[in-house]
Amino acid sequence: VEPFVCAQCRTDFTPHWKQEKNGKILCEQCMTSNQKKALKA
C-alpha cells in the first residue's frame, strides 16, 4: 500500500488521514487546524 503524503505539510505519518472534497489528502493535524481557522474566519 502506498503511503499517503499530506498535501499541506508533506508529512507521511499521522494516526488518521482525511480526504477533502477537492481530493486533497490531509493529515489529522492539518485538518484540525484548518477547521479551527475556518471557525475563526
Score class of each variant (00 low, 15 high):
residue 1 V to L: 06
residue 1 V to I: 03
residue 1 V to T: 05
residue 1 V to S: 01
residue 1 V to R: 08
residue 1 V to E: 11
residue 1 V to C: 08
residue 1 V to A: 03
residue 1 V to F: 05
residue 2 E to A: 02
residue 2 E to N: 15
residue 2 E to D: 15
residue 2 E to V: 04
residue 2 E to K: 02
residue 2 E to I: 02
residue 2 E to Q: 03
residue 2 E to S: 08
residue 3 P to M: 14
residue 3 P to G: 13
residue 3 P to Q: 14
residue 3 P to N: 14
residue 3 P to A: 14
residue 3 P to L: 11
residue 3 P to I: 14
residue 4 F to G: 10
residue 4 F to P: 04
residue 4 F to C: 15
residue 4 F to L: 10
residue 4 F to V: 11
residue 4 F to W: 12
residue 4 F to H: 12
residue 4 F to E: 06
residue 4 F to M: 15
residue 4 F to A: 12
residue 5 V to N: 12
residue 5 V to S: 12
residue 5 V to H: 13
residue 5 V to R: 09
residue 5 V to C: 02
residue 5 V to W: 02
residue 5 V to G: 03
residue 5 V to K: 10
residue 5 V to I: 06
residue 6 C to K: 02
residue 6 C to P: 00
residue 6 C to I: 00
residue 6 C to D: 00
residue 6 C to H: 01
residue 6 C to W: 00
residue 6 C to F: 00
residue 6 C to Y: 04
residue 6 C to N: 02
residue 7 A to C: 14
residue 7 A to M: 05
residue 7 A to F: 11
residue 7 A to N: 12
residue 7 A to Q: 13
residue 7 A to W: 04
residue 7 A to K: 11
residue 7 A to I: 11
residue 7 A to E: 13
residue 7 A to D: 13
residue 7 A to H: 15
residue 7 A to Y: 03
residue 7 A to S: 15
residue 8 Q to L: 15
residue 8 Q to T: 15
residue 8 Q to H: 15
residue 8 Q to S: 15
residue 8 Q to Y: 14
residue 8 Q to W: 15
residue 8 Q to R: 15
residue 9 C to R: 01
residue 9 C to E: 04
residue 9 C to K: 06
residue 9 C to H: 14
residue 9 C to S: 00
residue 9 C to Q: 07
residue 9 C to M: 00
residue 10 R to Q: 15
residue 10 R to K: 14
residue 10 R to T: 15
residue 10 R to I: 15
residue 10 R to P: 14
residue 10 R to M: 15
residue 10 R to G: 15
residue 10 R to A: 15
residue 10 R to W: 14
residue 10 R to L: 15
residue 10 R to S: 15
residue 11 T to V: 15
residue 11 T to K: 14
residue 11 T to D: 11
residue 11 T to S: 11
residue 11 T to E: 14
residue 11 T to H: 14
residue 11 T to P: 09
residue 11 T to G: 14
residue 12 D to G: 09
residue 12 D to S: 12
residue 12 D to N: 13
residue 12 D to H: 11
residue 12 D to M: 04
residue 12 D to K: 03
residue 12 D to E: 10
residue 12 D to T: 09
residue 12 D to Q: 04
residue 12 D to W: 05
residue 12 D to R: 12
residue 12 D to C: 12
residue 12 D to P: 06
residue 13 F to R: 06
residue 13 F to Q: 01
residue 13 F to K: 01
residue 13 F to M: 13
residue 13 F to A: 12
residue 13 F to W: 04
residue 13 F to G: 06
residue 13 F to T: 10
residue 13 F to C: 11
residue 14 T to S: 08
residue 14 T to M: 01
residue 14 T to C: 06
residue 14 T to Q: 07
residue 14 T to K: 09
residue 14 T to W: 01
residue 14 T to H: 08
residue 14 T to Y: 13
residue 14 T to E: 08
residue 14 T to R: 04
residue 15 P to D: 13
residue 15 P to G: 08
residue 15 P to M: 07
residue 15 P to L: 09
residue 15 P to H: 00
residue 15 P to S: 07
residue 15 P to C: 11
residue 15 P to Q: 06
residue 15 P to K: 13
residue 15 P to V: 10
residue 16 H to S: 07
residue 16 H to P: 04
residue 16 H to V: 10
residue 16 H to W: 10
residue 16 H to K: 03
residue 16 H to C: 11
residue 16 H to G: 09
residue 16 H to N: 02
residue 16 H to L: 03
residue 16 H to I: 08
residue 17 W to K: 14
residue 17 W to I: 10
residue 17 W to A: 09
residue 17 W to M: 13
residue 17 W to R: 11
residue 17 W to T: 15
residue 17 W to V: 11
residue 17 W to D: 14
residue 17 W to H: 10
residue 17 W to G: 13
residue 18 K to G: 12
residue 18 K to C: 10
residue 18 K to M: 09
residue 18 K to V: 10
residue 18 K to H: 13
residue 18 K to R: 08
residue 18 K to Q: 07
residue 18 K to Y: 01
residue 18 K to F: 02
residue 19 Q to R: 09
residue 19 Q to L: 08
residue 19 Q to C: 12
residue 19 Q to E: 13
residue 19 Q to M: 10
residue 19 Q to K: 12
residue 19 Q to D: 13
residue 20 E to V: 09
residue 20 E to R: 02
residue 20 E to M: 11
residue 20 E to Y: 02
residue 20 E to P: 01
residue 20 E to I: 14
residue 20 E to A: 01
residue 20 E to C: 13
residue 20 E to L: 03
residue 20 E to K: 01
residue 21 K to S: 07
residue 21 K to A: 10
residue 21 K to E: 10
residue 21 K to R: 12
residue 21 K to I: 02
residue 21 K to G: 12
residue 22 N to G: 14
residue 22 N to R: 13
residue 22 N to T: 11
residue 22 N to S: 14
residue 22 N to W: 12
residue 22 N to A: 11
residue 22 N to K: 11
residue 23 G to E: 13
residue 23 G to P: 09
residue 23 G to N: 14
residue 23 G to A: 12
residue 23 G to H: 14
residue 23 G to M: 14
residue 23 G to Q: 14
residue 24 K to G: 09
residue 24 K to V: 06
residue 24 K to D: 05
residue 24 K to H: 10
residue 24 K to P: 11
residue 24 K to T: 05
residue 24 K to L: 07
residue 24 K to Y: 01
residue 25 I to D: 15
residue 25 I to L: 05
residue 25 I to A: 03
residue 25 I to S: 03
residue 25 I to K: 09
residue 25 I to Q: 09
residue 25 I to P: 11
residue 26 L to S: 07
residue 26 L to R: 06
residue 26 L to V: 04
residue 26 L to M: 14
residue 26 L to D: 03
residue 26 L to T: 02
residue 26 L to E: 04
residue 26 L to G: 03
residue 26 L to Q: 07
residue 27 C to N: 00
residue 27 C to T: 00
residue 27 C to A: 00
residue 27 C to S: 00
residue 27 C to D: 01
residue 27 C to L: 00
residue 28 E to F: 02
residue 28 E to C: 11
residue 28 E to D: 11
residue 28 E to A: 06
residue 28 E to T: 10
residue 28 E to V: 07
residue 29 Q to P: 06
residue 29 Q to E: 07
residue 29 Q to T: 03
residue 29 Q to S: 05
residue 29 Q to D: 07
residue 29 Q to R: 10
residue 29 Q to Y: 02
residue 29 Q to M: 06
residue 29 Q to L: 08
residue 30 C to A: 01
residue 30 C to G: 01
residue 30 C to W: 00
residue 30 C to D: 02
residue 30 C to R: 00
residue 30 C to S: 00
residue 30 C to K: 01
residue 30 C to H: 01
residue 30 C to L: 00
residue 30 C to I: 02
residue 30 C to V: 01
residue 30 C to P: 00
residue 31 M to Y: 13
residue 31 M to S: 08
residue 31 M to H: 14
residue 31 M to W: 08
residue 31 M to D: 07
residue 31 M to R: 05
residue 31 M to F: 01
residue 31 M to T: 08
residue 32 T to C: 05
residue 32 T to W: 01
residue 32 T to H: 00
residue 32 T to G: 06
residue 32 T to M: 06
residue 32 T to V: 06
residue 32 T to P: 08
residue 32 T to I: 09
residue 32 T to S: 02
residue 33 S to D: 10
residue 33 S to P: 09
residue 33 S to C: 07
residue 33 S to M: 11
residue 33 S to E: 09
residue 33 S to F: 00
residue 33 S to K: 04
residue 33 S to G: 09
residue 33 S to Q: 09
residue 34 N to A: 07
residue 34 N to V: 04
residue 34 N to S: 03
residue 34 N to G: 05
residue 34 N to P: 03
residue 34 N to H: 07
residue 34 N to D: 12
residue 34 N to Q: 07
residue 34 N to C: 04
residue 34 N to R: 05
residue 35 Q to A: 06
residue 35 Q to P: 04
residue 35 Q to Y: 12
residue 35 Q to G: 05
residue 35 Q to R: 04
residue 36 K to I: 04
residue 36 K to Y: 00
residue 36 K to L: 02
residue 36 K to R: 05
residue 36 K to P: 04
residue 36 K to F: 02
residue 36 K to T: 09
residue 37 K to S: 08
residue 37 K to V: 08
residue 37 K to I: 07
residue 37 K to T: 09
residue 37 K to N: 04
residue 37 K to E: 12
residue 37 K to Q: 13
residue 37 K to W: 02
residue 37 K to G: 09
residue 37 K to F: 10
residue 37 K to L: 08
residue 37 K to R: 08
residue 37 K to M: 11
residue 38 A to T: 15
residue 38 A to D: 10
residue 38 A to M: 05
residue 38 A to G: 04
residue 38 A to Q: 01
residue 38 A to L: 08
residue 38 A to Y: 04
residue 38 A to E: 13
residue 38 A to H: 02
residue 38 A to V: 08
residue 38 A to K: 11
residue 39 L to D: 01
residue 39 L to W: 04
residue 39 L to G: 13
residue 39 L to T: 04
residue 39 L to K: 09
residue 39 L to E: 07
residue 39 L to M: 09
residue 39 L to P: 11
residue 39 L to N: 15
residue 39 L to I: 12
residue 40 K to L: 01
residue 40 K to G: 11
residue 40 K to R: 14
residue 40 K to H: 06
residue 40 K to N: 11
residue 40 K to S: 08
residue 40 K to M: 08
residue 41 A to C: 04
residue 41 A to M: 03
residue 41 A to S: 10
residue 41 A to P: 06
residue 41 A to W: 10
